[in-house]
Nucleic acid binder design. Structure first.
Length: 463
RNA sequence: UCCCCGAUAGCUCAAUGGUAGAGCAACCGGCUGUUAACCGGUUUGUUGUAGGUUCGAGUCCUACUCGGGGAGCCA
């Protein structure tokens, strides 16, 4: 007898096979003639398989009739064509072994009506719900597509460090990494002396693998990182986490337009794969979570991303006749309301905004010939907003040093970063994509805390 | 971090400053190739925490904690 999955047992081609299934009971319904239906789920797919458990099972009265939500079982039996509506197959059990009972009195997961806020407080059990099972499968699918896409295109997967000493690019507050005893730190002139710390200097959790990505790109061509990223920013929104997963490709000899082309192909590949490989999960999201999510995904998939400069965008906003809370003016940072207007009302499409004022962007972005703007790009999708941020990097040593001083950074701290420009410099580009932002877009889930298994946010690091 | 809103049974929510309730779940019984099964009955409370006002506070006031919506920071 083959061990198999619920996903396989639900398929018509399994009819006639003897199978062993192992999973968790979702519900039990007792029926006439004294037999019972069990809905079994093992995480392999969205749907459950219906088990028909007959009264002649030796443990029918003693155990089967007591099964309830959450109990774990091994079922052996034959896959049959189901005579009833709702499923193609069902499994006629020849034996049901109970591994773990589940006291319905105290088990927090019930058959209906739990809010996501509540389920977050039982994140160790929420994987057993329809929604979080579906999120986990789509997240897995996207993660797999990320590697496949880059591997097929000849990118090298590199592992950027998690611990870093570079207080880089002002990408927000950083978490400090230290072994110093906070109760009695070594002091020098009244300040903490980090020369006695583990690394002999202050260190932090990474806020980006970009600088290390550039090192590898400027020697090996096309690379990408895919790993956790940490921001100690006190952000309390449905779109921010203090620990999240980011994908950062970095490509030598790519200009900003090559970068845009790659970003568009990449996003479209992730969407196409999710639609093709997780149809049941996606259908569930469209039916129960966000009616627009399938339509939105398909529309992003089939339309070309628009490329609009910052200056053009400002012009559009000025001519829109709309009054915004933040008045529009060249040189200002675009606010959420402006981005939403552009993607959701004006263009009704995915938009790549590029060539932002230099004063708004970090030191490493390449300065345009006009001297006023830099080769930055943000990909804005309807519904979620900024999903990608990237740029062509400044490859000219003198300009880069000048930009560092301009933004208050000491070039000597970045000697290795400057060496990449000092020795055999090349034009290069890259971007960062937030995995959870993609999942928000695909699933239509409203809160980023519900598309990562164990969300870390200010005041919250349970599980 | 700022503005607004909220926290009542295991869950989802009611309750003019005057005896704390419903639906679901659970439990007991019935019925049934069932599909969020159905029908009848039973049980369920330190009203987020700490103070205050009042004869009397779930309700009014203050602080705190956590959550939600919006904003900022960004991915």
């Amino acid at each position: 007898m083959d061990r198999t999955t619920v996903a396989l047992a639900r398929k018509e081609e399994s009819i006639g096979k003897k199978v062993r299934l192992q999973g968790w009971v979702r519900t039990r319904r007792d029926s006439k003639g004294g037999f019972s239906f069990l809905e079994l789920n093992d995480g392999s797919c969205f749907g459950n398989v219906q088990i028909v458990a007959d009264a002649n099972l030796s443990n029918y009265e003693s155990e089967v009739k007591k099964l309830a939500v959450g109990c774990s079982v091994t079922v052996e039996g034959e896959v049959l064509k189901s005579p009833a509506k709702g499923q193609a197959t069902e499994v006629k059990a020849s034996s049901v072994i109970v591994h773990g009972w589940c006291d319905a009195e105290t088990y927090p997961i019930q058959k209906k009506g739990a809010s996501f806020e509540f389920l977050r407080t039982v994140a160790h059990l929420r994987t057993r719900t329809n929604t979080f099972g579906a999120v986990a499968r789509v997240r897995n699918c996207v993660s797999n597509s990320i590697h496949q896409f880059f591997q097929e295109q000849g990118f090298l997967y590199i592992h950027a460090p998690i611990i870093t000493a570079s207080d880089c690019e002002g990408a927000g507050e950083m978490f400090r990494v230290t072994t110093i005893d906070p109760a009695k730190p070594p002091l020098l002139d009244g300040k903490v002396d980090y020369s006695h710390d583990f690394y002999g200097k202050p260190t932090y959790l990474t806020v980006s693998g970009q600088l290390q990505g550039e090192i590898f790109a400027c020697g090996m061509g096309k690379v990408y990182t895919f790993g956790p990223t940490f921001r100690a920013e006190n952000s309390n929104t449905a779109r921010h986490l203090s620990e999240f997963w980011m994908i950062e490709p970095e490509m030598a000899f790519y200009d900003l337009y090559d970068n845009m082309t790659l970003a568009e192909a990449f996003i479209k590949r992730l969407i196409a794969d999710a639609l093709a490989k997780c149809p049941e999960d996606m259908a569930f999201f469209a039916e129960r979570i966000d009616k627009e999510c399938l339509k939105r995904a398909e529309s992003v998939l089939k339309t070309s991303f628009l490329r609009v400069t910052y200056t053009e965008a400002i012009d559009i906003l000025l001519k829109s006749g709309k009054t915004f809370e933040y008045p529009v003016k060249w040189g200002m940072d675009l606010q959420s309301e402006h981005e939403r207007f552009l993607t959701e009302q004006h263009f009704k499409n995915t938009v790549i905004l590029h060539d932002y004022p230099r004063t708004l962007k970090p030191f490493y972005m390449r300065v345009n010939d006009d001297g006023k703007t830099v080769r930055a790009m943000d990909v804005l999708v309807p519904g979620v907003g900024e999903i990608i941020g990237g740029s062509q990097r400044e490859e000219r040593l003198a300009v880069l040093e000048e930009r560092m001083r301009e933004t208050g950074l000491d070039p000597t701290h970045y000697w290795w970063y400057l060496d990449l420009r000092r020795y055999g410099t090349v034009p290069h580009s890259g971007f960062g994509l937030g995995l959870e932002r993609v999942l928000l877009f695909l699933t239509g889930m409203a809160n980023i805390r519900d598309v990562i298994p164990f969300p870390r946010t200010p005041k919250s690091a349970e599980f």
